[in-house]
C-alpha cells in the first residue's frame, strides 16, 4: 500500500516536472510506420523540415499496438508536449476520449474529424486532386482505357478512385476505367510486386495510363509502366522524378505542409476543422521539369481551367465518402 502510494506520488511528481521542462511538439505515426514512403513519411518530412528550420527538437512515436494509441497520447500530453499531431483516421476514436482530459494541450489529427474544443482536424479534398489527374489521364491516353490501382480497400481510397473516374469521364465520357485494389489487409500498402503485376494485367486489358493510390505498392506500378513505355501517375508526394518521362503527374496531398504548419503554430493551433483542397494548396497535380514534356500546353490549360472552376464551386466533384457511392461506372 505505502509502496504503491510512493510510486504513484513519484510518478505524479515526475509528470509535473516533465510538464515544466517540455513544450516540444510531438508527432505520432500510425501503424504503417514513419518510413512508409507515403502518408506517414510525408508527415515525417514536414516535422523534419520544421526541426531543420527552427533548430528545435520534437518528440515522435510510432505505435505498434492498438492499445498504444491512447497510451502514447496520454503519455505525451503528460510530458507536456504541445501540440500533439497524429497521422491517420484510426486515431479519431481514441482522441475523442483522450482530448477532454487534457484541455491545455492542443491536438491535431490528419485525415479525420474530431469535434473537441482543443482539437484541430485536418482533412483533404482528395477527390479534387484526383479529378484533375483523371482529366490528364484521359487526355494522355491513346487507347481510351485508363487504370486505377488502390492500396487497401477502404473508403478513403475509393474516394481517390471515384474522383479520378469523374475526371476521366469529364474529358472523355466514353473512356473505360479499370479499377483494382491491391488487397484487403494493411500489407496492401507495401506490396510493389503485386502492384507491378496488377499494372501489367490492366495494360493487357488496354490501359495505357494508370493512377496508383497505394503507398509503397505504387512504386511497383510506376516501375511497370515505365518498363512498358507507358504512363503512371504518382500519389501523396511528388513522384514525377522516379521515372522521368513515364510519370504523367502526381496527385500531391500535402500532409507535410499540414504537419509543418501545426508545428509552426505551436500552442496557437486553431481548433476546428481545417479542410485542405485545391483552393488552399492542400491537394494539387504536380507539374515540374520531369513531366513538362508529357503535359502539353492545351492539356495544362484545360486542367487549370477545371481547377479554377472547382475552386469557384462551378464544378462539384462528388465525394465518395459522403454516401459510399460513385456516380461513375468503374470496371
Amino acid at each position: 500500500m505505502t509502496m504503491m502510494k510512493t510510486t504513484l506520488g513519484a510518478a505524479a511528481v515526475l509528470a509535473l516536472s516533465a510538464v515544466a521542462a517540455l513544450a516540444e511538439p510531438a508527432i505520432i505515426y500510425d501503424i504503417g510506420g514513419k518510413y512508409d514512403k507515403s502518408f506517414n513519411e510525408a508527415a515525417f518530412h514536414g516535422a523534419a523540415k520544421w526541426a531543420k528550420e527552427t533548430g528545435k527538437k520534437y518528440r515522435e512515436f510510432q505505435i505498434q499496438t492498438q492499445a498504444q494509441r491512447s497510451q502514447a497520447l496520454r503519455q505525451l500530453a503528460q510530458m507536456g508536449a504541445n501540440p500533439i499531431v497524429m497521422t491517420g483516421f484510426a486515431f479519431a476514436d481514441t482522441l475523442d476520449k483522450v482530448a477532454p482530459d487534457y484541455p491545455k494541450t492542443k491536438f491535431v489529427i490528419v485525415d479525420s474529424v474530431v469535434k473537441e474544443p482543443n482539437v484541430e482536424s485536418i482533412v483533404f479534398h482528395e477527390e479534387q486532386g484526383s479529378y484533375l489527374v483523371g482529366m490528364l489521364a484521359a487526355m494522355a491516353s491513346k487507347t481510351g482505357t485508363v487504370g486505377f490501382i488502390g492500396g487497401m480497400d477502404i473508403p478513403l481510397i475509393r474516394k481517390f478512385e471515384c474522383g479520378y473516374a469523374q475526371g476521366v469521364k469529364a474529358v472523355a465520357p466514353k473512356d473505360k476505367i479499370i479499377g483494382n485494389m491491391t488487397g484487403t489487409t494493411p500489407s496492401a500498402w507495401n506490396d510493389p510486386v503485386k502492384g507491378g503485376e496488377l499494372a501489367k494485367a490492366q495494360m493487357s486489358q488496354g490501359a495505357d495510363v494508370i493512377f496508383a493510390a497505394a503507398g509503397g505498392t505504387g512504386i511497383g506500378v510506376l516501375q511497370s509502366m515505365a518498363d512498358a513505355g507507358k504512363l503512371g501517375i504518382g500519389v501523396d508526394s511528388n513522384q514525377d522524378y522516379l521515372h522521368p518521362g513515364h510519370v504523367l503527374t502526381s496527385m500531391v496531398k500535402r500532409v507535410n505542409v499540414a504537419v509543418y504548419n501545426a508545428f509552426m503554430e505551436g500552442d496557437n493551433v486553431k481548433p476546428g476543422v481545417k479542410v485542405m483542397g485545391l483552393a488552399n494548396n492542400g491537394v494539387d497535380y504536380s507539374y515540374d521539369k520531369y513531366n513538362e514534356k508529357l503535359i502539353t500546353p492545351e492539356m495544362k490549360a484545360k486542367v487549370d481551367a477545371a481547377k479554377k472552376e472547382i475552386i469557384d464551386g462551378k464544378i462539384k466533384v462528388h465525394d465518395y465518402m459522403t454516401d459510399n457511392k460513385c456516380p461513375v461506372q468503374i470496371d
Binding site: A92, D93, D111, P155, L156, T184, D323
Partner: peptide, 22 residues
Amino acid sequence: ASALLNYLLVNVLRPEGAMDPS
C-alpha cells in the same frame, strides 16, 4: 479470416459515413 472480417467491416458493419473500417 482477415479477408472476411475486412469485407464485413468495410461493407456491412461500418456505420454510414464513417471513415475507419470498424
